[in-house]
């Protein structure tokens, strides 16, 4: 059979499929939520409000029929705590097709809100009496407060970080910092010998070199501000009156390095804040779960 016959054979057998692109088109977006964020928010708020209304109605009904309304609200609260803990489980068992973690996070947020209402019904005075119950109530309120802070932080921090000039990985920030120090050193070394060089080199050795070589202070990591950056840039700008145009290009590069370094430090600070918050929230949640379990065991024992 000749090559022409081969082409005919191929043509005959492949006609239903595309020759130039035999592959099916892929799904156009994977991971896009079904609803817009605004619509999703309204749906979730609606469901939470309906569930809360049902809870309050049920609680009142039990109270007016002289039932144990505390057992009811406590059971709901314990169920909420269990559901809240499932987010962590889902994050670790990513291989299972149990909705994306983002859906679980939404469940977590609105269950948390619902749990606050259940807590208000369960402990109307907010802080219960006695060290055990009072401590448990304080812990619940702390975890709830940290949860609300987490929502604010996880919504505001990304925008702040996106506005910066660099987008480094958290684990590579130290490396980037080192590279910046080397680049600054090289910029100074490349200057030709002159009186101008002395001016900028002296300032570099005294002020900028220690800045590039050091880590950001604890104060900065806890409360990052642009004070230091502005001070250094102003000082560098002041040197303009002593140097000519050739050296001022190096000064401009150093100014760019300062801005870059400040952006890296800001990333570091926000990274620590986001990670630190998660560690505290998770640890407090675990303690709350344990403490609540003891509380449930004691309460069940007292009822029986």
């Amino acid at each position: 059979m000749t090559a022409n016959a081969l082409a005919e054979n191929v043509t005959r057998q492949r006609c239903p499929r595309s020759v130039s692109d035999p592959v099916q088109p892929p799904p156009t977006i994977i991971g896009q939520p079904r609803y817009t964020f605004a619509l999703r928010r309204w749906i979730a708020i609606g469901i939470t409000a309906a569930a809360s209304a049902a809870l309050i109605w049920g609680h009142d009904l039990i109270r007016h029929s002289l039932g144990r309304e505390a057992v009811f609200s406590g059971s709901v609260l314990a169920g909420c705590l269990l559901l809240l803990m499932l987010l962590g489980v889902r994050r670790r068992l990513i291989v299972l097709p149990l909705w994306p973690v983002s859906v679980w996070l939404q469940i977590h947020l609105y269950t948390g809100l619902f749990a606050c209402i259940a807590f208000w019904l369960h402990v109307p005075t907010w802080i219960a009496s006695g060290w055990f119950e009072g401590g448990l109530a304080m812990l619940f309120l702390s975890v709830s407060a940290s949860g609300f802070y987490g929502i604010l932080l996880s919504r505001s921090a990304p925008r702040k970080l996106t506005g910066l000039s660099v987008q480094p990985r958290f684990d590579r920030i130290v490396w980037h910092r080192g590279q910046l120090a080397i680049a600054a050193d090289e910029a100074i070394s490349a200057l030709p010998e002159s009186a101008d060089r002395c001016v900028i080199e002296t300032y570099y050795r005294r002020t900028l070199k220690p800045y590039f070589a050091s880590r950001p202070s604890w104060h900065y990591l806890l409360h990052p501000t642009g004070v230091q950056r502005r001070r250094l840039l102003a000082e560098l700008n002041e040197l303009g009156r002593y140097i000519d145009r050739d050296v001022s290009s190096t000064r401009d590069r150093l100014a760019a390095f300062i801005r870059h370094r400040d952006d890296l430090d800001y990333h570091r600070a926000m990274g620590y804040r986001l990670r630190g918050w998660l560690v505290i929230h998770t640890a407090a949640s675990l303690v709350l779960a344990g403490w609540s379990l003891v509380h449930v065991v004691i309460a069940t024992g007292m009822i029986h």
């Binding site: 977006i29 994977i30 991971g31 994050r91 990513i94 994306p100 973690v101 996880s154 990304p158």
Partner: peptide
């Protein structure tokens, strides 16, 4: 995609 908690990754 499944692990992103904030619907940031697609």
């Amino acid at each position: 995609v499944a692990s992103c908690p904030h619907d940031a990754l697609v």
